[in-house]
Design a protein around this nucleic acid. Sequence first.
DNA 1: GCTTGACCCGTTAACGTTACCAGAAGATAA
DNA 2: TTATCTTCTGGTAACGTTAACGGGTCAAGC
Lengths: 337, 337
Amino acid sequence: MTQRPITMKDVARAAGVSVMTVSRAFKTDSSVSPDTRDHIRKVAEDLGYVLDSTAANLRSQRSDFVAVTIPSLNNANFADTVSAMSDVLGKAGMQILLGHTNYDIHEEERLIAQFLQRRPAAMVVTGGRHTDRTRKLLSNAGIPVVETWDLPPDPIGHVVGFSNARAMDPLVAHLQATGRQRIAFIGGDADGDTRGTDRRMGFIRAMEARGLDPTRLIRAGQVPISMKEGAAAMARLLADLPDTDAVICVSDLSAFGALSECARRGVDVPGDIAIAGFGAYEIAGIAHPTITTMNPHPRRIGTRTADLLLMTMNGDAQGETLRFEIAPEFVPGGSTG
Amino acid sequence: MTQRPITMKDVARAAGVSVMTVSRAFKTDSSVSPDTRDHIRKVAEDLGYVLDSTAANLRSQRSDFVAVTIPSLNNANFADTVSAMSDVLGKAGMQILLGHTNYDIHEEERLIAQFLQRRPAAMVVTGGRHTDRTRKLLSNAGIPVVETWDLPPDPIGHVVGFSNARAMDPLVAHLQATGRQRIAFIGGDADGDTRGTDRRMGFIRAMEARGLDPTRLIRAGQVPISMKEGAAAMARLLADLPDTDAVICVSDLSAFGALSECARRGVDVPGDIAIAGFGAYEIAGIAHPTITTMNPHPRRIGTRTADLLLMTMNGDAQGETLRFEIAPEFVPGGSTG
DNA sequence: GCTTGACCCGTTAACGTTACCAGAAGATAA
DNA sequence: TTATCTTCTGGTAACGTTAACGGGTCAAGC
């Protein structure tokens, strides 16, 4: 039984007022007498009327969408960032349009092109490396753009993030300070995960700066690398470079895999080898031993981004492009003794 | 420099054709000569034109949105389901509008009311317990509705899920078969997580059916319970009911927390106590020992749901309400020896 | 030649809402 | 009393696109 959908016109007729008054009854800031508003709301509820925000957006030429792209849905760090953004933006009546790129900047381009058709009020992307067309699309969109989880040298718009490269420094410093010299790095194969690539670069630079050998690099598989791949990489590391005395993993997940592999083989952590990760995932704090890591404060990134957007959309800071650095925090754990 | 946004009219003028022809040039299935289409596409690209799907949706009275609500973004199981749905629906040109309810059916109601204003082509919700208003909203929306991750007794529309209660049966059976008698259950406090509540109920029923004592129930904190809360609950269990010889945790995350706590205290798993979880999270397969669990096949749920929606939206199976049971699979691990 | 049909393109109106302007009714001030 | 302001409500047009239909052109068939 498909019946004609109910519109404002129906509500107006039933309530004995004009459509315009019905429209006003559904906006919080417009002037309708309290009685009329209540009456209209009640009539609407009885009729089962639901406002059509598609039409509203078209007419008013503004939308309550903020489009967001992240590399993967299945990642606690990105999920935290989005969740925090959603909390702040939701209170302001905005909605998040979320998409995942599978760590592929061409998929990101496709997704962003699709999102822009929705005429979002703002666009948030993860990372600072994009296709040329993506950059062009975002620049021409005429809306606030925020790049997160990175500190790109040539930003498109606003930035809320940190240097993935420099984030390796405290870890290398800590390992050296605790007497380790032969430090390895476990990361993903491809360059799809630019944050992972940046961390590897940062590792190399930090090692060189300290006069240490930066060539113990293990490729663990397709990004994002899993716990299992971390374990396999650790197995290879122990076989190929048995004198290694510490390893930094591109994420806590692979670090935990590496830790498990050591447990399985009876390799003592941190006695025989120290292990560090990145991301401050819950597993890092509960593993046995706990895993030394860096906390990039994902929720803080999300909150900052949302606040920034609300500011610029209110007309403050118009035209400026803002840049917030959220410094990752060193979190010592038992895995580096 | 805010300039007037570019519309089809601008493209039409620049390409020397009518707006209608431009519109057709952007739809794959409509009849425009290849030359004209290429020309228009090129002109549009040069002008930086981006189609406004808000207007398109309004005019055509259909949308390419599928709205989806899940309890939490930060959950690998739900993320997998959404990701699989997104893969299938994306290929059909549809987009997912995702929201999280924080395990609160009133928040779910708010979210669904908001989503329905977008006139989605379909609506997917997680779980089978909702507020009365939610049920009414979904019933009256005139679009396909799917409830997932559950097998509700009184479904609103289609169903793709499984019985969380019955899913406890294989675990209890396995534990009993391996000689355990004094089996405990660790779950969340509140009833917000209806799937968790169902599992506890299912545990009690399975225990009773086997003549075992179903009263060893530990409340571990606010849902969703974390690894840490799982660990704390295990500590309480060991203190309060030291003769317990097995424990089923509401999820693998809490199970891993429990396992860690045992490791910390030198309690042998599975020698002193067996541990089982639920969800087949990656951690279950890599923990040491691996954790016995149930795999609810989250991606399969997502794929099935998406396929079902594409079917009904193509006009097949109109009017029927379909019900797919995706049976969880028992995954033995080392933690139950 | 004329008819028929396929293919391509244009004109008009409409989707459901809100911006904008205006006007009526009542309150307040002179 | 009249003038002025405030509060509430209504009429009209427009947002950018596509559905529906109509018309023109050209090739094939008679």
